[in-house]
Design a protein around this nucleic acid. Structure first.
Lengths: 127, 127
DNA sequence: TCTACTGTATTATCCGTATTAGTACAGTTG
DNA sequence: CAACTGTACTAATACGGATAATACAGTAGA
């Protein structure tokens, strides 16, 4: 279910968190589903339990999961609200970048054509 | 000419580099102009000469300046080509973000309306 | 040539943060 | 009580950023 690239520059705990988020987006993980335990997942990924825990803490911070001591880590019932907020934050970041690009003198058309390509281009969803 | 925010989370050397780039974009610095010397600028900004040197090295890497040992650090004659390449790189980064946002289920219209706001909104250029 | 400027290189130290790890503790369930 | 769950604490390591002191090398002008 999970797959980690140890050679990536993105930290392992972040890979786990991002992957979990995408598993929700793709419907593999649904609200109230329980995630693998800290120990089982760390064994599967051959990492330290604390690394997995940090991923869970990150997911908790993002509003994706709710962890219950002694019971486990569960996808929040309102996970899609959290995902919407995350998307909004990414959109804000995109706007920040866009202002920089505008300041660099790039015309609006250059941006819109690229974005249209992305939205028209095929069915790949990048998950 | 230069102004540094020591409390910012962006490193001083990066602030210097970014500011220099913007001074070119706004026409304050022109091709072949000489930048302040490492020592004078570090004195002015109350930083270490090495910090300024790192900024100059960064600007060299970006293709903004050409430093000549013994003479000084000068805005490259072809600086605007470098700026175009930098803008293209930023556009690529924007596209990467855009794919993420699309994967999160955000409709194309949400993005285009935000971007149109930025390009129609006033004359502020963020420099 | 001498002098005063320019950038460059080297080495070291300090600080803060990120990442991973080891170990022990605490809550829950049957 | 046993076996599972998450949690806290500490430590080792690495990295990035900034500072500092020094020394070196190229350039330009008096």
């Amino acid at each position: 279910m999970y797959q980690i690239d140890a050679m990536s520059r993105t930290p392992v705990y972040e890979q786990i968190a991002d992957m979990t988020e995408k598993l929700v987006l793709s419907g593999v993980l649904k609200p109230n589903d329980m995630l693998p335990s800290v120990r089982s997942l760390s064994a599967e990924l051959k990492t330290n339990p604390n690394t997995v825990q940090k991923a869970f803490t990150e997911l908790d911070f993002r509003g994706i999961v709710r962890t219950v001591p002694g019971r486990g880590c569960f996808i929040r019932p309102d996970v899609f609200d959290a995902l919407k907020k995350r998307a909004a934050a990414k959109l804000a970041e995109l706007c920040r970048l866009c202002r920089e690009i505008r300041a660099a003198g790039v015309p609006l058309e250059d941006i819109t054509t690229e974005i249209n390509k992305i939205y028209n281009g095929g069915e790949e969803n990048g998950l």
